[in-house]
Nucleic acid binder design. Structure first.
Length: 738
DNA sequence: AGATAGACATAT
DNA sequence: TATGTCTATCTA
């Protein structure tokens, strides 16, 4: 593949050519053809407005596929107008086509991801500026005097700015314009983003960081595809290291995309960026207003915006000249898009980097299995940051065997951990107890008849949330008030909570340590984002002695003062047959342990488990990451699952076929890798679905559920045709584009 | 994605 | 026979 020209391709269609193909952001197989109006010049990548049926839609002029498609010329309609934005670059067009092919999705659906911003939003009204003339108002009111005084320096201000500075309403300013006291000028549009300064503040880097940064900078200078894994322990300064590569891209006048899992786009990251580059990066995620999105879209397309930090959707921004991609926390599951177009943003980022001929850095303390494998096979370069920047070490997890030294019945903190927490409290240190279970108790059962409360719609356990006085289903969101009697045998006051959730753990810690200030952190914390921010601040300021938290505490936020971390139930999430369970548990607990310790204090971490002999626990205790990956890779190979196996879903729709619908539901529940999954083996894939290199593999919830391969074969043979449609997502080797 | 044209089901 | 609801099909 040749490097596409970063600027507008000069290869316009010959002037006598009056028809172009336009890809529409719809689930249509191919681009449609449109007549080009007299005098309009179009090239592939241009965004245009075209008529479609009764309405008008946005589309993208698409390279003409080989061989003129036979469309009745009488059906051709004309392009309405060109949309005022820089054209999509050839690499972007290639990206859309590749990704569509790769994800078995119509290209239009991928284009839709790129054009999803509001068309009108970015255009923005013209801003009017005002300045003071020599003329003075005939009737001089108090408000008018204030305006004249405020603008006496003669500088141009926007209307709203002038009003604000003078402390009057905008109508006063308008009145003065009418009287000729103020003159108006058209102001240039506000810049889409501030310009980062690569030399704003050069950081002090450790030798390991400097070495890694130099390698990355070289890769940026080379302007070639080069995938790298930045693999460094928590606190090793991975961010500061890749910032040097970002700085180099800025110096070269190229753009950078920094992808992060939605949750990681925190103030902490933005602050660090601002410290290094003097300004905030352009942010792109679901909370950004549509007006702002429109503006950014244009700024990114024109090349004006040089650094974008965003969630996975930022991958579809129309960069003019992308010089570097960073995928922070590359192992994070949030990169996987599971509805609409199914894709993994990390893999698509690698694809995009290849097509843009740009280096890409995947960043993680606990790389995903596939990234580790790619690195071991030499497809990615490994840059290892072995030490913490502060000099303290990431603590080893000390195992607590719950079979031997478990807590008394009805309690969850082992005596040894409780003593350690007590010591930490006396020494003025902060502790964190980690339990990946929201609510009070994960299961409620009837003491009288043994009935267990299940969700009526999806049959998983109902989780008691004592604070909200509700039973909630964590699977589907169903909720009901806590009943006073058993729904099965109607025995009153017989329902008892089983097992711990963070709420219950909180209760226990308060009992164990009456003098400690204890705070629960859970994603369902009452009071929303505001409250969460306040609590995090309180923790940071040392106003909390013990934090009891779920998954949330493992990601994003930094707790600068943690001296002790205790994992309450390390076995949660293992043993459900999920092929990713071991990997996820390892990553999560490794990250949690990494929270302990600070600049001058070595932290300690404890791991409560019933299965200390389990490979995940052994690897965590030994701190031996390589051994863990070795094992995990071997297990996959034995099961004939490629280490890359990504997703598989079979979606059946149709009213007449109830069996098909229940199959679809079962599959939706198990794909991709969320519950017990069994490989039914390679089946003869329908030719229509399998394109060349894609291997076909079906995963089902269990052997008993149904034999999918024969089901699909029957379906393809037309047996239960009904009115349904069938979509099979195929297990693809995600590196097939490398 | 919409808009629309058929296929059934139900009201008038 | 008009009207509503659900789906599959089409848009150049």
């Amino acid at each position: 593949m040749t490097k596409p020209s970063p600027v507008d391709s000069p290869s316009l269609f010959p002037s006598r050519e009056s028809v172009v193909d336009v890809l529409l952001p719809l689930a249509i197989g191919a681009a449609y053809s449109y007549r080009v109006p007299e005098g309009m010049e179009l090239a592939p990548g241009d965004i245009v407005v075209v008529p479609l049926g009764t309405r008008e839609v946005l589309g993208c002029v698409w390279p003409r596929a080989g061989g003129a498609p036979a469309v009745d010329p009488a059906k051709l309609k004309s392009i309405k107008r060109r949309y005022d934005v820089a054209p999509l670059q050839p690499a972007m067009l290639a990206f859309i086509e590749w990704m569509a092919d790769y994800t078995v999705t119509p290209p239009g659906m991928v284009l839709r991801l790129a054009l999803r911003h509001d068309e009108s939003a970015g255009i923005g009204r013209e801003r009017t500026g005002v300045y003071l003339t020599d003329r003075r108002p005939e009737r001089l009111t108090k408000a008018r005097t204030k305006v004249v005084e405020a603008l006496f320096d003669g500088f141009v201000r926007s209307k709203s700015e002038a009003a604000r500075e003078a402390g009057v309403s905008a109508s006063v300013v308008d009145g003065l314009i009418d009287d000729g006291v103020l003159e108006t000028v058209v102001l240039p549009p506000e810049p889409a983003a501030e310009v980062p300064d690569p030399e704003h503040s050069r950081p002090d880097l450790s030798p390991a960081q400097s070495e890694a940064a130099a390698r990355l900078v070289d890769a940026v200078k080379a302007r070639a595809f080069a995938p790298t894994l930045i693999d460094g322990v928590t606190g090793s300064g991975k961010t500061e290291t890749y910032f040097e590569a970002v700085a180099q891209a800025i110096r070269q006048g190229q753009q950078t995309l920094i992808l992060m899992p939605e949750i990681a786009l925190t103030q902490a990251f933005l602050d660090r960026f601002a410290r290094r580059f003097g300004v905030l990066p352009a942010e792109w995620h679901s909370a950004v207003s549509s007006k702002r999105r429109g503006k950014l879209f244009k700024g990114v397309a024109s090349g004006e915006v040089s650094v974008v930090a965003g969630a996975r959707s930022a991958l579809f921004l129309p960069f003019r000249d992308l010089g570097l991609i960073i995928v922070d926390e590359e192992h994070d599951g949030a990169y996987k898009q599971e509805d609409g177009v199914h894709y993994h943003a990390r893999d698509m980022a690698v694809l995009r980097a290849r097509l843009e001929e740009a280096p890409i850095a995947l960043v993680s303390a606990t790389p995903s299995l596939e990234t580790e494998v790619n690195t071991r096979r030499g497809r990615y370069t490994r840059l290892h940051l072995p030490e913490r920047f502060t000099g303290t070490r990431v603590p080893r997890l000390e195992p607590i065997d719950l079979r031997k030294e478990g807590p008394p019945r009805g309690q969850w903190v082992a005596p040894r951990l409780a003593r350690e927490m007590e010591c930490t409290l006396e020494a003025g240190g902060q502790s964190l107890l980690f339990l990946n279970r929201r609510g009070y108790a994960p299961l409620t059962l009837c003491r009288a008849c043994g009935h267990r409360l299940r969700c009526p719609s999806c049959s998983s356990w109902l989780v008691e949330h004592r604070f909200r006085r509700r039973l909630e289903c964590h699977q589907c969101g169903y909720a009901m008030p806590v009943p006073s009697e058993c729904p099965a045998c109607h025995e009153p006051n017989a329902l008892i909570p089983c097992g711990p959730g963070v709420e219950r753990l909180h209760e226990e810690v308060v009992r164990l340590m009456p003098n400690a200030r204890v705070q629960v952190l859970s994603s369902d914390l009452a009071g929303g984002v505001e409250r969460m921010r306040a609590e995090l601040k309180a923790i940071e300021d040392g106003e909390v002695d013990v934090v009891v938290g779920t998954q949330l505490v493992a990601k994003g936020h930094n707790f600068p003062g943690l001296a002790l971390v205790g994992v309450i139930d390390a076995d949660v999430g293992l043993g459900h047959g999920d092929p990713r369970a071991a990997e996820r548990t390892f990553q999560l607990l490794h990250q949690v342990a990494g929270r302990a310790g600070r600049a001058n204090v070595e932290g300690r971490a404890f791991l409560q488990t019933y299965i200390p002999e389990h490979p995940v626990m052994q690897a965590l205790v030994a701190g031996d990451r390589d051994a863990f990956y070795d094992q995990e890779i071997a297990i996959r190979e034995e099961a004939h699952l490629p280490p890359f196996a990504r997703f598989c879903a079979l979606i059946v729709s149709g009213t007449d076929n109830h069996a098909a619908q229940s199959h679809a539901r079962a599959l939706a529940a198990c794909a991709p890798f969320t519950s017990e999954v069994r490989v039914l083996g390679p089946a003869e894939a329908p030719l229509a679905l399998v394109r060349g290199r894609h291997r076909f593999r079906l995963l089902a919830r269990s052997e008993r559920a149904f034999d999918l391969s024969s089901y699909v074969r029957a379906w393809m043979a037309g047996a239960p045709r009904a009115t349904g449609s069938l979509k099979v997502q195929i297990d693809i080797d995600p590196q097939s584009f490398l």
